[in-house]
């Protein structure tokens, strides 16, 4: 393992961006580890959430934004609820995803593909069309066997809509997305 030069890995602009966008003071973290202790998804993380926080304090942008953990965070707010320093850790994780997406860094492509399929459906219909989202996801990832085992369980229940429930204000929703993209590229 390489020796980490704390001066050269430190990106102060990144630290400030995370603090600014999340509204959370990273210096308040004293590394008790409670966020990691209660994280239901820690078993799947490559970097535990308390170590994400530590890496943020050290300004290690690449390490944090290239992690898989930020995409696997379930947004369940256990970390936020139990932080003894009142840090909204879940919001910090959210903001890390925002920054990573802006920079085109995604270590868990499947997750963002699903989210993108979801939002594409919202943009198109105004409401989510569940079958359409899964179909889109399968088409983009080529994972054709996704949840095929569940089909016989759910099909007879008559719950899945064969058609999207488009709303009248579809254009309004599309405009929200359009303006969002314009703001982003500005």
């Amino acid at each position: 393992m390489d020796v980490t030069n704390l001066e050269s890995v430190r990106d102060d602009d990144f630290i400030h961006a995370v603090m600014e966008e999340s509204g959370q003071d990273l210096t308040h973290c004293y590394q008790c580890g409670n966020c990691t202790a209660g994280c239901p998804c820690g078993f799947a993380y490559d970097i535990q959430v308390s170590q994400i926080m530590r890496n943020l304090q050290a300004g290690r942008k690449d390490k944090v934004l290239n992690s898989r953990s930020i995409w696997l965070c379930l947004s369940c707010s256990s970390c936020t609820t139990r932080c003894p320093n009142n840090i909204d850790v879940a919001r910090v994780m959210d903001v890390l995803r925002h920054i990573a997406r802006r920079e085109g860094r995604v270590a868990e492509r499947g997750v963002t593909t699903f989210w993108d399929a979801f939002l594409a459906s919202v943009r198109k219909h105004g409401r989510v069309y569940e079958l359409g989202v899964v179909a889109n996801y399968v088409a983009r990832t080529g994972r054709v066997w996704t949840d095929i085992d569940l089909l016989p369980r759910i099909a007879p229940k008559g719950k899945l809509s064969p058609m999207p429930h488009g709303i009248q204000g579809r254009d309004e929703i599309a405009r929200i997305f359009q303006r969002y993209e314009e703001e982003r590229t500005r």
Binding site: F118, V122, I167, Q168, I173, I176, Y180
Partner: peptide, 22 residues
Amino acid sequence: PDWSCCGSTPAHALEHALSGAL
């Protein structure tokens, strides 16, 4: 009337203002 999707996790994981608008 004519309610629309809140954007759920995919929206707030992408951008808070987008989620807020939806």
